[in-house]
Amino acid sequence: MEIPSELHYTRDHEWLRTEGEEATVGITDYAQSELGDIVYIELPEVGVDVVQGKTFGAVEAVKAAADLFAPVSGEVTAVNGSLDQSPELINQSPYDDGWLIKVRLAKPGEVETLLSADDYRKLIEQSGGD
């Protein structure tokens, strides 16, 4: 199970990569593996404000649907348009080509509330992940 050390994580299995005032959001390798084949994705439009801990979209896998929760608050500055035609990118490359949205951080302090890679690894080990 890949858990890049430089990223921040949520208990709902999203990751956050900060780049200055902007951050990229996706779902973790563990999340995509648990969901299985992803076939549809619902994402907000550019310009929409997302709020930490609130739903900003959903992924629909063959087996089940899952809500997406914003790791941080801010305005959506980019959406991964490739996922509309190729949602399987999330399964194939959850930390790169399968990114979901980019957000301009409204409250940079929120990043500190997220889990480190080590903490996230402990979380999924406790929940029976491998």
């Binding site: 299985g36 084949d37 076939v39 063959v62 087996k63 399964n91």
Partner: peptide, 9 residues
């Protein structure tokens, strides 16, 4: 077994 290589595959 619910899946091996993936349900779609």
């Amino acid at each position: 077994p619910i899946q091996y290589s993936g349900i779609l595959d």
